[in-house]
């Protein structure tokens, strides 16, 4: 089962925006069973997240929608307040596996890396990924390389783990989906050690509908251009 070294605090950040309440509830319920702190960031959903906060579950709410990048940064800020040693980001649409969290934490706890990035494309191949989606992700990978100079097997995987050093140095300014590339840019800029960890992703019709479209990719590229231009 999940081990916790020296009573380290692990915070799992779950950004939520207009998700199906039954899906979110199921995801949160599974996460609450772990010996970790759950930080839900409701990014201005029309129907606010109904999970009841308790000692280990915290709910933050943006009163207007800002985007996933902004929601994650709010989660990061809160994790600093509660003095979390490790931070996991976990999508609310049910595509990630709870069993993968441990795999991402281990390299951080053994001080091999500062950031662990989940990847769908290393290790055993995932058969639920459609062809169209693979092309989108491959294009995203290419753009990641153009903007950051780093080739990562999976450019936009929501499952990531950060240690305290990474948490202190990474501050996201990209409110929308360009934050995925911004994280890699900040890793490079701050010379953080990173590792890609194979994770499995469960694509349901629901998570596919909520996922990134190719058209949305254009918006990400525009945001990245502006980021490069003005930062």
């Amino acid at each position: 089962m999940h081990t916790q070294k020296n009573n380290d605090t692990v915070a799992i950040i779950v950004p939520v925006y207009n998700e199906d309440p039954s899906v979110v509830d199921a995801v949160i319920e599974t996460l609450q069973k772990l010996p970790f702190t759950v930080v839900i960031v409701d990014d201005g959903s029309a129907i606010p997240v109904s999970v009841r906060p308790d000692e280990k579950t915290h709910i933050l709410r943006h009163f207007i929608n800002l985007g996933q990048g902004a929601a994650l940064q709010t989660g990061f800020e809160f994790s600093k307040i509660i003095n979390a040693d490790y931070i996991i980001t976990f999508d609310a649409d049910g595509q990630h596996q709870v069993s993968d969290i441990e795999k991402l934490l281990l390299p951080l706890q053994s001080n091999e890396a500062d950031v662990c990035l989940g990847s769908r494309f290393i290790g055993p191949q995932n058969k639920t990924i459609s062809k169209g989606r693979t092309i989108t992700i491959k294009t995203a990978r290419l753009f990641n390389f153009i903007f950051t100079g780093k080739i990562l097997s999976d450019a936009h995987n929501g499952l990531r783990a950060f240690n305290r050093t990474a948490l202190e140095t990474i501050s996201l300014t990209e409110n929308r989906m360009a934050h995925a590339t911004e994280i890699i840019l900040k890793i490079k800029k701050n010379r953080l050690r990173y590792k890609e960890i194979p994770v499995s992703v469960l694509y349901t019709n629901y998570s596919l509908k909520k996922g990134q479209s190719a058209l949305n990719g254009l918006r990400i590229i525009l945001d990245l251009f502006l980021n490069k231009l003005f930062e």
């Binding site: 709910i59 709410r61 943006h62 009163f63 902004a70 709010t74 800020e77 307040i81 502006l226």
Partner: peptide, 25 residues
């Protein structure tokens, strides 16, 4: 104008973030 809009967005984000953190804490 785009640069100004981004700056405005960042300010707005800070305000909303501050408010949400304050309410929860």
């Amino acid at each position: 104008l785009y640069a100004r809009q981004r700056k405005l967005e960042q300010t707005l984000t800070q305000i909303i973030r501050h408010q949400s953190l304050q309410v929860t804490t």
